[in-house]
């Protein structure tokens, strides 16, 4: 079996950040001497990703996602630990490595503002030394997949946010990278555009077999693209495994929605926690274990028009994960408990 494309071992990054109290005096004092504080942005994470996988990298703001991505993209030196991507140590920034990977940052642009998109592409072609034939083919393919045709000859400043993002992504893929680091590629985009970009990433992965590590705050992205997710929080790996397993593990609840005949809706708090209550429709949160029993009681006691049982939305599950205290012990993908937490 081929070795994993991305191998991360006990990676740590500690920042020293300047700190000062509010006020002019403190600001002036800090010109001379800055007090610093250590921030453990990434605190020992270990995982690996196989070729062709799309892995979702989840965590709240400040969890350490971007820091990890930057280390893997060779922008940051880790404080401790090691990582290999395609066999290279990223922060050594071997040209061969840089030629095979790409970093897309949803919040930042590399396209040149005042000139047409296609000219920015030309620049990347020159930087990556892409042979003309390969370049022509790749551009053609990307234009078709992302529907860039009408955009190519417009100056970047005239594009909408979504159009710009499509072009940014295309510019980052001209050299046909084997590994993609996508840092919130759909941020700020409308739902249609998000879906389009998601579809593109899936298709690109299918066609090229490229490995993708993706962060996003939109669960829809993750649900659509990633069968596997890695959750980090406070710089520590909380979960690594299938998305369904995450739901299973962190949500010991089901949601029961009942539509009742007798309006106005009655108080159902005796059956479970009432999450929502509209005209005649009530949603209850019920522990998984007693869901069948509660369902039975509801059907027996009330005049029910309709009843559905669902898993809670993934956002809610994630929220619950992040609400966990820092020391909570959690499993790795194989369901093993992390030894140091036992």
């Amino acid at each position: 079996m081929a070795s994993p494309v991305i191998q991360v071992h006990d990676l740590r990054k500690i920042y020293m950040v300047g700190e000062r109290e509010a006020g002019v005096l403190a600001a002036v004092r800090s010109l001379v001497r800055r007090r610093t504080r250590a921030i453990r942005a990434v605190d020992g994470i270990t995982f690996h990703v196989d070729a062709g996988e799309i892995v979702g990298f989840l965590g709240p703001n400040g969890a350490g996602k971007t820091t990890t991505l930057k280390m893997l993209a060779g922008l940051l030196h880790p404080t401790e630990g090691d990582a290999r991507v395609l066999g290279f140590r990223p922060w050594e920034r071997d040209r061969e490595y840089l030629r095979r990977m790409t970093l897309v940052m949803g919040q930042r642009n590399q396209l040149i503002w005042d000139i047409p998109v296609v000219d920015s592409f030309e620049l990347n072609r020159a930087i990556y030394n892409i042979p003309p034939e390969a370049y022509r083919q790749t551009v053609e393919e990307l234009v078709a997949l992302l529907e860039l045709g009408p955009l190519l000859h417009k100056p970047v400043r005239n594009l909408s946010l979504g159009e710009r993002m499509k072009c940014e992504i295309a510019a980052s893929l001209l050299h046909r990278p084997r590994v993609l680091f996508l840092d919130e590629p759909t941020i700020g985009l409308d739902v249609t555009m998000q879906r389009r970009i998601r579809g593109f990433v899936a298709e690109y992965n299918r066609r090229t077999g490229a490995t993708v590590l993706l962060t996003s705050h939109y669960m829809a992205d993750v649900e659509a693209l990633c069968r596997r997710v890695i959750v980090i929080h406070h710089g520590v790996l909380l979960f690594d495994g299938a998305l369904e397993a995450l739901v299973e593990r962190f949500s010991p609840f089901k949601l029961i929605t009942v539509e009742l005949a007798d309006l106005p809706a009655r108080d159902l708090s005796a059956y479970g926690q009432v999450v929502r209550q509209d005209e005649g429709t009530v949603t209850l949160r019920v522990p998984k274990a007693i869901t069948p029993e509660v369902t039975g009681r509801l059907l027996a006691d009330l005049e029910v028009l309709d009843l559905t049982v669902q898993d809670p939305p993934i956002e809610e599950v994630i929220e619950q994960v992040f609400a966990q205290p820092e020391e909570t012990t959690l499993a790795t993908g194989n369901g093993e408990l992390r030894p140091e937490l036992l």
Binding site: A73, G74, L75, R95, L98, R99, M105, R108, Q110, Y128
Partner: peptide, 10 residues
């Protein structure tokens, strides 16, 4: 922070 793009170029 866009220097990152420059630094990831070969």
């Amino acid at each position: 922070g866009t220097l990152d793009f420059t630094l990831t170029k070969p």
